[in-house]
Write a protein that binds this DNA or RNA. Structure first.
Lengths: 211, 211
DNA sequence: TCCTGTGAATTAGTTCACAGCG
DNA sequence: CGCTGTGAACTAATTCACAGGA
């Protein structure tokens, strides 16, 4: 793993390429050019080749890429050859939707625990999951061997929860709360802010025709 | 609106600054430095000033920014001085979570219609919303004067639905389906791919310590 | 003095263009 | 040939650093 710093945009595109490779795989394609993959993924062939080149030479000149082999390589690169144990922090409606989100499971992410602080929710069952008490967060993280936490809480308690998660040894988090979380080096946080996405659309609507 | 092309990353940050400005506003702060705003938003003061400078000079040298005035400016820039009528395409669990997502309403995005193709769902009530038949998509878009569509469907039908939405006059969409959508110029699509976010985390986990 | 606003310098990311291998 | 892999060229984004107004 001699990889120097790879841009986040590159990693995202690799994940997207993998999706389309698997689609081509299902359609029975054996070989694929960077051009064809780029068309599907909405980028350019040079971008595809450059992205892949950071990790090795996976193609055959004059031919393209072996669909199966490249998919396998991308799964290796992305760390998708194992399964991850995911904790949901917050048992609201978005959390409920995420537990049912089939794509997570298909890609190796298993939601194994949900915690909340609301006594009315604690003990409730969501399919095979039972909502646990956030008070026990540290024990749960350890006993359930959590790899990744997904924060689906209001903004206010998010930082305190992150501090507890970090102290308990969680090093990767996906944050839906609209706050900037502070974590020590060695811990990765990715933010998803749905309202911000809509606001970039409202910006675009506002600034039409002024090109 | 003399604005030349502004980077997407800049627009996102403006939306984030606005959040923190409103937080400072609630706490009764009147004035704020780029440094303080940057600290809260997880960036640098130079970045804050540069982002704002694309749109004007909003600060006072030696003092900082007037919190209220800057918030008002950002709402102008982002097009948040009006409300937007939003259509949800797909009535799954994620859609259900989005209808309850208070932040949307707080920021001016009103979900006014939900459509689905499942006869078992059509006619069901979600609070004040009644799930409509996607067959009537074109009429609904027009009658409900839809500004923005949110696609919360499986990958397969997404492109066909987008084509219908575009034909019906929708020019801004937020896409949760894991496909690359093709739209004509003048139509904006933002993608949210939750599985890709988790995959960037699995990449980060995989590539630890190899810096 | 303090902190903004902004050109200039730097760094990062993308695209070009072609050598080289199958 | 055809298509990859990759330096080189270019473009975009961020950071620096400081002039100048409050």
């Amino acid at each position: 793993m001699l990889t120097r710093k790879i841009a986040d945009s590159t990693v995202r595109r690799l994940a997207i390429y993998l999706r389309f490779l698997e689609e081509f795989e299902r359609q029975g394609a054996d070989t694929l050019s960077s051009e064809a993959l780029a068309a599907r993924a909405g980028t350019t062939s040079a971008q595809v080749r450059k992205d892949l080149s950071f990790f090795g030479s996976f193609g055959k000149r004059g031919l393209g890429y072996d669909v199966h082999a490249l998919a396998r390589q991308l799964r290796n690169i992305l760390g998708l050859t194992r399964r991850y144990r995911v904790l949901l922090v917050g048992a609201g409606r978005l959390a409920g939707a995420l537990t049912q989100y089939a794509e997570f499971g298909a890609r190796g992410f298993d939601i194994v625990v949900v915690v909340d602080k609301d006594p009315a929710k604690i003990g409730m069952r969501w399919a095979e999951l039972v909502i646990a008490d956030v008070t026990d967060l540290e024990n749960i993280v350890k006993r359930a061997r959590i790899d990744i936490a997904i924060l689906v809480t209001p903004a206010a308690p998010a930082q305190a929860l992150v501090d507890r998660l970090v102290a308990a040894g969680v090093t990767a988090m996906l944050n839906f709360a609209p706050v900037q979380l502070h974590v020590p080096a060695g811990v990765d946080v990715k933010n998803v802010n749905l309202a911000v996405e809509l606001e970039t659309l409202s910006y675009a609507i506002q600034h039409r025709g002024s090109s």
